[in-house]
Design a protein around this nucleic acid. Structure first.
Lengths: 201, 201
DNA sequence: TTGACACTATATCGGTCGGTATAGAATTCG
DNA sequence: CGAATTCTATACCGACCGATATAGTGTCAA
């Protein structure tokens, strides 16, 4: 009962995603958000709670829609193809002209230093979770003998994440897709090759 | 003639550096800055111009004092030792307990999205300059035959910068020095080895 | 029709932002 | 001394921040 909403909740969320992506969490003002979403300020608060909760909902949507390639990459048969799909897919998203350059999470992360509050911790936790997922995939590979003994899956997961984060910063600075793909290719060269594998074994 | 300053200009600049490092450019408020510097707001404007100019002076000091290892690394004899000193030295600074974690430039960079203004462009330009310097060092190595033919110095410089930027983000997220050193070690594995070099040649 | 209800619109809240005008205090010159 | 100069201190500027109170508007059930 009562008066129905005059806007599409999901569509407005998508508009908010674009604004947060472009300006980061703190850089996106409520005025910008409501303008882009086509709703008024009280509507935003009634529907999404507040700026923080809106951003969390945006983050969820971002991971589900734009980061869906991650799950596909983790399902790849080999470590190499997994990491390759991961970094190449990331390069694609970071430079997709349909969206602002860079990564929503990274664009919103660094700002505010260390005492800034809950959103910063939330982003750190989400990145940590992503790294854990990759590490578990690599641990499985190690258990199956694909990773040479002595190679630490945690180290490799951290390395891949670092390269990805660096690519995100470079994308936000204007790097092209081709440039980021070259970064991904060079990053892949660090992986132990079959020859090196045999040499160690 | 006139009344002398009651504070040390360089010392106050150093205090401002700490604040900007911890909170980023936009995250550092004038109140925080003046409190840390031990001066009043009009003194800050009379001495350093405004917040932007103060930050530029801080950036200069940061590069000269905390990034001095870069010049040493570029003077290393080999490509490998250059990149190793570069990444290891960066890991050191990023996790030095004497300073806030992460990189002043990166902590101040991503925030504000893409339209944020002059400071953002300044930081992008400085990073681009750093990458150019590294690329020139690698071009020299390539000309001397240290880099195998077919290897693009620009690609390698971009790759090293990306790894460094990623390390900076991870450091700001709480990564330890040991973790970043492991990232640097794995990143170094991407470098062409003597064996691969010989194989190509 | 008539409430009850949920949405929208306007105007505004206290707080903080970067930046300054103004007045008082301290030093060097003539 | 007194005038000129340069610093410091207080108080304040308009603008914007995130968040809301209040009033008006549309839609349902009874």
């Amino acid at each position: 009962m009562g008066r129905p909403k005059e806007f599409d909740v999901d569509e407005a969320l998508c508009a908010a995603l674009q604004v947060f992506w472009r300006h980061g969490y703190e850089g996106a003002s409520l005025t910008e958000l409501t303008d882009a979403m086509g709703i008024t300020r009280p509507s935003l608060y009634a529907t999404y709670g507040n700026k923080e909760e809106l951003f969390r909902k945006v983050l969820d949507r971002y991971e589900q829609s734009h980061m869906c390639f991650v799950a596909q990459a983790l399902a790849e048969p080999s470590v190499r193809s997994t990491i390759e799909k991961l970094l190449k897919g990331y390069a694609d998203v970071l430079t997709d002209p349909m969206h602002p350059p860079g990564c929503l999470g990274v664009n919103s992360a660094v700002c505010g230093g260390e005492g800034s509050g809950a959103i910063r911790q939330e982003l750190i936790a989400r990145r940590s979770l992503s790294e854990d997922t990759l590490r578990e995939r690599l641990e499985r590979a190690a258990a199956e003998g694909e990773l040479p003994p002595g190679e630490d899956p945690a180290d490799w997961a951290r390395y891949v994440m670092s390269v990805g984060l660096g690519m995100a910063v470079k994308a936000a600075s204007g790097a092209s897709r081709a440039e980021l793909e070259r970064v991904a290719e060079l990053a892949l060269r660090a992986l132990p090759t079959a020859r090196q594998d045999a040499k160690v074994a």
